[in-house]
């Protein structure tokens, strides 16, 4: 791909409830922070791609709320109704096409304004799955059990993985501080083994000549019905990962940030990505440390970018996901420019 690089990243602190900020103010906060860090301003942004959810925001055409803070009026803008990691594909395409030089990418999510479980239920097909009363957490439970049983593992591995994520998140000033208990939530998953519902936003600026470049990406979608997939397998994730590594010409990365909606996914996605033990996985705490809706995957990209820019490794992997228990995956390979 044509060189597209990240000129800067910003994210809000993620937390359970941001009553003090509506969507416009949340986007304003993260975009202004991005400009402060990069020295950029709206008049130097050519185009805007946002990621948000109409159901999460309780608003059809959810991106209307962020038009003004994003500086979209009078410019070309569009919205990807998926996790921000997928939106990044469209943003990068706009630059690689030669039509635009810089693109502002912004993703937001506020779990506190809606009812996350009821909204998740509405994401299953209305004929077979939705009437059964399934939601994102119970789908995670089905996946976690199949994962453990397929590998003959004990539930304690889930607690161990969750504890590792929590320890990493404790060192991340932006992570969602919560007091999740070790009580069963969606068997075999306990409350502290499921990623939190967070409020937060993330923005980044794409262009040319930044310290970290987008070296490759891969993206794939799986079948919708849960029973069409073996939930104990990483599904289409290896396909997306292979494609990203191939495009980037990279065999192994130094750091990886993944969207793990449960601690079972921390283990399962690591396996699907083929990450060896030496690779630092989710040094930020990952999605287990904060899960602000459709911004979650973009936060992964931002975290990897910041680490590479600081010299903590030369290549990194960022993973985003949309749908339940990994129906759609997106994998990015980032590389520090030497």
């Amino acid at each position: 791909m044509k060189p597209v690089s990240i000129l800067g990243v910003a994210q809000t602190k993620h937390c359970a409830r941001r009553d003090d900020a509506n969507y416009m103010e949340l986007a304003f906060e993260v975009i202004q922070d991005l400009f402060r860090k990069t020295g950029w301003s709206h008049d130097r942004v050519d185009t805007i791609i946002s990621a948000s959810s109409d159901f999460w925001d309780g608003r059809t055409i959810s991106e209307i709320a962020i038009q003004d803070p994003a500086g979209a009026p009078g410019k070309s803008a569009s919205k990807v109704s998926m996790d921000g990691a997928f939106a990044l594909i469209y943003a990068a395409a706009r630059i690689a096409s030669g039509a635009f030089k810089t693109c502002l990418v912004v993703a937001h999510g506020k779990a506190s304004e809606g009812e996350p479980r009821a909204i998740a239920n509405a994401g299953f097909d209305p004929l077979f799955q939705r009437p059964i009363g399934i939601d994102d957490h119970t789908a995670l439970g089905l996946q976690a059990r199949r994962f453990l049983e397929k590998r003959g593992m004990l539930g304690s591995v889930l607690a161990e993985a969750a504890a590792q994520s929590a320890a990493a998140a404790a060192k991340n000033p932006n992570a969602h501080r919560r007091a999740a208990k070790h009580v069963l939530a969606a068997d075999p998953l306990h409350e502290d083994e499921i990623a939190p519902d967070s409020d937060g936003a993330c923005a980044l600026l794409l262009g040319e000549g930044g310290p970290v470049e987008l070296a490759g990406f891969g993206c794939a979608t799986d079948a919708h019905q849960l029973g069409e997939r073996d939930l104990g397998d990483p599904g289409v994730l290896p396909r997306a990962s292979l494609e990203a590594h191939r495009m980037a010409g990279v065999r192994e990365v130094d750091v990886a940030e993944i969207h793990d909606a449960s601690s079972a996914q921390t283990l399962l996605w690591r396996e699907g990505l083929g990450l060896p033990e030496r690779v630092a996985l989710n040094p930020s705490g990952g999605a287990m440390g904060a899960q602000p809706g459709f911004a979650t995957g973009l936060v992964r990209v931002a975290e990897v970018c910041e680490r590479l820019a600081r010299g903590e490794g030369r290549t990194g992997l960022a993973h985003g996901m949309t749908g339940f228990v990994g129906q759609a995956h997106c994998v990015w390979i980032l590389r520090r420019r030497s």
Partner: peptide, 20 residues
């Protein structure tokens, strides 16, 4: 049954499962 979980959104909780 290929896998199962417990949904605590209802009272009493319901056992959800994938059945082949």
């Amino acid at each position: 049954v290929t896998t199962w979980t417990l949904s605590r959104r209802t009272s009493p909780p319901q056992i959800l499962a994938l059945v082949r």
